[in-house]
Structures are given as structure tokens and as C-alpha cells.
Design a protein around this nucleic acid. Structure first.
Lengths: 241, 241
DNA sequence: TGTAAGGCCTGACGTAACGTAAGAGTCAAC
DNA sequence: GTTGACTCTTACGTTACGTCAGGCCTTACA
């Protein structure tokens, strides 16, 4: 199946298919000698999954990361996407309720507070972070916190030292040698106080941004440190996988 | 109310409020000597309306045009937006149904055609054009068509001549003198065969893009002519208003 | 009154995800 | 072989902000 047919079927443009090929998001099964892209049935399933993530609000980069994760499980992902769509549906319901109330307000039937006026308009939630929260959840936060609370002063100092070193390199790219070396030490340190798979390590990194407690604590060592660590941990995981 | 408070209330960023001020979409009621933006209650109502159009899929430019139209009626707009949100919800429901069916497919419970796989993913509808269709609808199409069917050959030739002239200038900007002069003739011509207000004229221009029959007919005189005429008619209307 | 912290401004560069267009090669039907 | 539709690559442009820097403004408290 060539680009025009796929475009007509799926609702995306030919340009979009080119773009997704270029960025490595959706590679066609076959590319002919003439350069024509031939898409398989598997490609169509993949495209469907991509379009769902896109519709939910994931960036293409994030989508690519999810699909390339060795532990990616299609059925699990579909279930997760279904839940996320329901959340969108709930938000849309809120918006409809708010506009209906606004229409009533306009007719003088009700009054509205400022808060009511914008109910349904909170788009600040980042679905990628929300997904991490759903997946790793409170458990990893509590478990890590509990372990850290059991620290002796030697580990506490060690932890703070790594934070400080990370804060110092946070102006570097997250994939630089220095950043990766230091984040490697963080990974090892965490595995002296617990057992973290690479996936869990990356998940924890996402929680640094998704969970306000983590973020606030870490950013005390330097502005944007939580964000930097999240990126470096993700990079570390992808390099080791 | 200053930017931080408005941002927290509405869910948009401070940068967004700056941007909307810059482009003239949402001007604060007061700007202090220090340059501080002070938003009024009326500004909040306006922002709500903007955010609804944005959520539905209108570009900021389109939103600005709608809000600035002298015949803009707030209650009517809210009702129209409510309907558009219902359409979005229907589409979201389709997507949810499709993903549920995909999950079943993944478990081997059902099979799926290619068409079924992408049901719900048709985002090609342009809400602005759809709005024009809703507003001016079949009526204006049929009325204009009927009138043109009653032409003598003199009017028919006159109409074709204007189309040809427009096709010749379509490479120019829609707001250029030449384009506007020719589109002015089109406006006059239409008003010899019927009565078109400026709003209706602009609405007809939108229908040239929204209704496939119009588009196909007009584009026979030159590729992209319908699009050009739509733009020029809109510009003509805004200049005269 | 002075101070400090938080808030706000403008200017400006960068980003993501394509849309559009041009020029040229490929494919399929007649 | 021809023609029209399809496809390619290249490359520039668009929209709607996000991010950041440097500096001014406001408010609460000592």
C-alpha cells in the first residue's frame, strides 16, 4: 500500500507519512528502488497506535520512545490509551457543561464565578508524565522515600554529593559523557539502596517531573535539575537497552 | 487582575496572554504606565470564548476575525460552540469505540477492516468552513445556483469573464488593489442577480471552499481560484466594514 | 523609609509538526 | 510509445507559543 492510499485510509497527509518516515517514527515495510514507500498491514496497525497517542497529546518524540521501548506491549498500550481517551472525554464533558452554564448566564438565569468560567480548561497535565504516574505511581515514590528515610548520614551525604555534582553538569546536554557518567553513579547508588531495573530507573526519572514532591526537593540543588535528571536518566536507559 | 492571576484561573500561560495581546486578539482593559496588563471581567469572558474556539480547532487568526465581526453575537456564538463541542465529543466516542474494538481484535475476538481501524480519525474537517456551512448552509448554495441557472447568455458570459479575470490575478495577494477591484466587480455582479450583504458575500466565499460543488466548478478556471476568491472576498468584506 | 522578594515587562531566539511548492523520476493504463 | 496520475526529495514557510535574559515595578515587612 502506497502513500496516497494510506493517507486516504488513515486521514493523515502524505507529507505526514514522509515526515514520520524521516524521523524514524513509522518506517514503511519496503522502500522500492525508485524510493516508493510500501506500507504493510503491520505498518497500519502501528500508524493507528501512533495516531491514538497523537490525539491524546503525546509529542512525536515521546511516541517514538514509547514504541521503541523493548518492553512495549501492544495490548497494554491500547488499554492505557483507552483510559486516557476516557479522561479526555471527561474533560470535554466538563467543557460542555461549562458552556451550557455560560449560555444560561448570558440569559440571566444563573451567575458564574471566575473559577466556574474556566472549568474544563486545565490542559496543563502532561499525558506522558501522567502515564508515568499511572505506571509507576505512588509506589515508587513511597518506596524510594522510605529507603531514603532509613539512610545513615554517610548515604545521605553521598546522595547530596551526587545531586550537587549533577547540578554542576546540568548545563551540559543530557547525553554528554560527563552527564551520563554522573547519572550512572546515581543509578548505582540507587541500586545499593534498592533494586531498580533500567525501566524503573527511567520511570523514576519521569516521576521526578510528574510528582511535585520529588521535583521540589531536587530543584533545591539547582533550578531545572529535576528536568535535567529526568532527561539524563532516560538517555542512560536508552543507551543501555 | 494581572497576568499571573488570569493565567492561574484560565489555564493559559503568561506568555500566551502576552502573545494574545501582541496579536490584538485579547487586549487588556488597562495597561498601566509601567506596562502592566490589567484584565477586566469582560476580558475574562472574552478569553473564555477564545479558549473555546481554540479547543474546537480554530486558528487564532480565525478567532480574531470572528470576534471582530460587527455582527458577532455572543449568545449565538456560545450556542454554536456548544454544537461544535458536541461534534468533537461524537468523534471522540468513535475513537473510543474503535480502540475498544482494536483491543478485542488483539485478543482474537473480532477482525477489523482497514477502514474500521481508522474510524474516528478524520480530522480533515475544517471547523471554520464547517461553521460557514452551518451558518449559510445549503440555502445560499441553492439560491445562488438557482439564480445562475436563470441566466441569459449575456450574464453567463459576463460571469465567466469575471472568473477568467480573477484567475489571471490569483497569483497576486488577495488584498492587492487589482484583486480587490476585480472582486468588487464580482460583488456588484452578484448584486445584480440577487441581494448580498457584505456578510453574506464573505459567507459565500467560505462556501466556495466548504462546498465541493462550488470549489470544483470554480477551480476549473484555474487551480486554487476558489481559495483565492474566498480570501479576496473576506478581505473585501473586512475593508468595507 | 528602606529593603527584599516576587511579579512584571520587552525583546528575541528556538521549537514542533507539519503545509506548500518546485522540479524531476516512476508507474499503470491505453 | 504516450499521457496523466503518482511519487520522490529538497527546502522554505507557518503557527503558537516556550524559554531565557536583563531590567523595571509592586507589595509586604522591619
Amino acid at each position: 500500500m502506497r502513500v496516497k492510499e494510506v493517507a486516504a485510509l488513515s486521514g493523515v497527509s502524505v507529507r505526514t507519512l514522509h515526515h514520520y518516515d524521516e524521523i524514524g517514527l513509522l518506517k514503511p515495510a519496503v522502500t522500492t528502488e525508485a524510493g516508493y514507500r510500501i506500507y504493510s498491514d503491520g505498518n497500519l496497525s502501528e500508524l493507528q497506535q501512533i495516531l491514538y497517542y497523537r490525539a491524546i497529546g503525546f509529542s512525536l518524540k515521546q511516541i517514538k520512545e514509547i514504541l521503541r521501548n523493548p518492553s512495549f506491549n501492544r495490548l497494554e498500550a491500547l488499554e492505557s490509551q483507552r483510559q486516557m481517551l476516557h479522561r479526555k472525554r471527561t474533560q470535554l464533558d466538563d467543557m460542555i457543561k461549562t458552556i451550557e452554564r455560560t449560555i444560561k448566564e448570558g440569559k440571566g438565569e444563573v451567575t458564574m464565578s471566575h473559577e466556574e468560567r474556566f472549568k474544563g480548561f486545565d490542559f496543563s497535565g502532561n499525558p506522558y508524565e501522567q502515564e508515568a504516574k499511572d505506571r509507576w505511581g505512588e509506589e515508587i515514590v513511597d518506596e524510594t522515600t522510605k529507603k531514603m528515610n532509613q539512610f545513615g548520614s554517610e548515604n545521605q551525604e553521598k546522595m547530596n554529593e551526587i545531586y550537587r555534582r549533577l547540578a554542576e553538569v546540568r548545563h551540559l546536554p543530557a547525553d554528554s559523557e560527563e552527564a551520563q557518567a554522573t547519572i550512572g553513579e546515581w543509578y548505582q547508588f540507587l541500586n545499593t539502596i534498592g533494586t531498580y531495573s533500567l525501566d524503573a530507573f527511567a520511570g523514576l526519572g519521569e516521576m521526578y517531573m510528574a510528582d511535585e514532591r520529588f521535583k521540589t526537593n531536587i530543584d533545591q540543588f539547582g533550578q531545572g535539575l529535576a528536568c535535567f535528571m529526568r532527561d539524563a536518566m532516560k538517555e542512560f536507559t536508552q543507551t543501555k537497552n
